[in-house]
Amino acid sequence: MEAILFYILAALIIIFAVASVTSRKILRAVIYLLFVLISIAGLYFLINYNLLAAIQLTVYAGGVIVLFIFSVLLVHHVELELEKTPLKRKIIAGILSLLGLGITLWSIFTYTFKTATTTYSSIEVRDIGLKLLSYGDGGYILPFEVISVLLVAVMIGAIIVAKGEKLKEN
């Protein structure tokens, strides 16, 4: 049952990802990306990482995709078709990507992973929260704080960059 579910999700992910990078309508590309993200959230559910799935849905599907859609609407006509990529470029990029994929897969398949045999229980949100705020061994309080500072900086930076000329005029 779970295996079948995984295969379905994997197929969805790959199909929509390909659609997302090839679609010539920009808004559709964004929506395909949304589907990919939702499918990935499905995978998180499948392995019982509920918190991650929730974050994936809220931040990505809820936040980032909306941001994309707004920006697309700001700078494009919805019906505008994107320019065609030159074929030569497509071929080179395709070959390069396939080569990279081949190398990666080859190296993955020649390596023997020591899969854990212990049964695992679904992780609790509480555990993640404690880990994030712990300053003891293996605690993540410092990166957590750094990320929060980064987010503030990005927020201010984004505002200033987007406002651009107007700030100067004032």
């Binding site: 080179i92 990029a93 390069l96 080569l99 990279g100 190398i103 080859w106 190296s107």
Partner: peptide, 16 residues
């Protein structure tokens, strides 16, 4: 970016 990835691929191939 393509040059970068291409170079990376080549190096990986050589190393392997």
């Amino acid at each position: 970016a393509m040059s970068f990835v291409g170079g990376g691929v080549v190096i990986a191939m050589v190393v392997f």
